[in-house]
Simulated scan of single mutants.
Amino acid sequence: MKAIQFLIGFALLALASSLASASDPSPLQDICVAIEDPKDGVFVNGKFCKDPKLARAEDFFFSGLDKPGNTANRLGVDETDANVEQIPGLNTLGISAFRIDYAPYGQRPPHIHPRASEILLVLEGTLHVGFVTSDQLNNKLIAKVLNKGDVFVFPKGLIYFQFNIGKTNAVAYSALNSQFPGEITIADAVFGANPPINPDFLAKAFQLDPKTVKDLQHKFINGD
């Protein structure tokens, strides 16, 4: 009897393990609407693959992360991406990277990466960084000041920010566990949505005057 119970338990454990490993792959694009006829398809979950026999070194190469970005913009920050758009060989590998340049007091405002966690290495300057947990942990702010050589991790899907609190330029490198992590800047997405989100709804959601919301929408939509 014990032998039979052991075999049944082992079989159930094996089945559970099989089901756990049979989950859907992580999405590699914002949306992927299903179609019935493959001939009408444009994308797969990621990129189509070339014949492996035709691969060359250039498919796995990118040059440019040593060059400073242009921080002459309203946020004082610039990102140089090294994802699957720049390095085709990253397709299906689940990794990417980018360089971030910050002018004095430049910032990456609150945003999320919907498809990746991020690890940040500071090369120059001093950054104030942090992320906010979900309401499960009461929206706790976890933040720290980073200096040259410091590393910080931002969990996937959580709102986070980076701010150069120094009087000199700052530089950092980031690595992410997605070939195309995506980025949603909260203010741009909410107040710059096209077509605009109903301002009365946003006014109640953010506890603002509707006129203030309309002014913000005008700024974000028109790039003022």
Rank of each mutant, 00 (worst) to 15 (best):
Q162G: 13
G130C: 02
V171G: 02
S174K: 09
F60Y: 12
P38R: 09
K211N: 12
H128C: 01
L127N: 04
N177V: 04
D135E: 12
V132N: 03
Y173A: 03
D30K: 15
A34E: 12
A57R: 15
D78C: 10
P38D: 03
L75H: 07
P196S: 10
G149F: 04
D40R: 00
C32D: 13
L54Y: 07
E124I: 02
C49M: 11
S26D: 15
V44R: 08
P199D: 10
A11Y: 04
L141F: 06
F62A: 03
V153G: 02
L141P: 00
E85R: 12
L146T: 03
A170E: 05
Q179K: 03
E124V: 05
F10C: 09
A172F: 06
S26N: 13
P88T: 03
F60N: 07
A116F: 09
V171I: 14
D30S: 13
V190Q: 01
V42G: 03
R108T: 10
K144R: 14
I95L: 15
E79R: 13
F98K: 14
I197K: 05
K53V: 01
G94M: 08
L12V: 15
F161Y: 15
N83S: 15
V132W: 04
A11T: 12
S23K: 15
L120Y: 03
A20Y: 11
S117W: 04
A57G: 05
A103L: 08
F220L: 05
L137E: 11
D150S: 07
P38C: 10
K47Q: 12
A172P: 00
E36C: 01
V171R: 12
H128E: 11
G182C: 11
F152R: 05
P27D: 14
A34P: 04
S117I: 01
G41R: 14
A82D: 00
P199H: 13
D215Y: 05
T126F: 01
G130I: 04
V145Q: 08
F61M: 14
N194H: 08
K39Q: 08
D40T: 04
D224H: 04
E124N: 08
F48Q: 04
L90R: 05
P68M: 05
V151A: 02
G125A: 06
K144H: 11
K39F: 03
H113M: 11
P196W: 08
I197E: 06
V213C: 06
Q207L: 11
G76F: 06
D78K: 14
L208Y: 04
E58L: 13
R74F: 02
V213Q: 04
D150M: 03
A34R: 10
G157M: 08
L75V: 01
K50E: 12
R56F: 07
T92F: 03
I119E: 06
I221D: 00
V145W: 01
E79A: 11
D40P: 00
R115D: 10
V171W: 03
V42R: 12
E124C: 01
L141R: 10
E183P: 00
F60E: 02
P199K: 13
L216G: 03
D78E: 14
Q207Y: 06
Q29T: 15
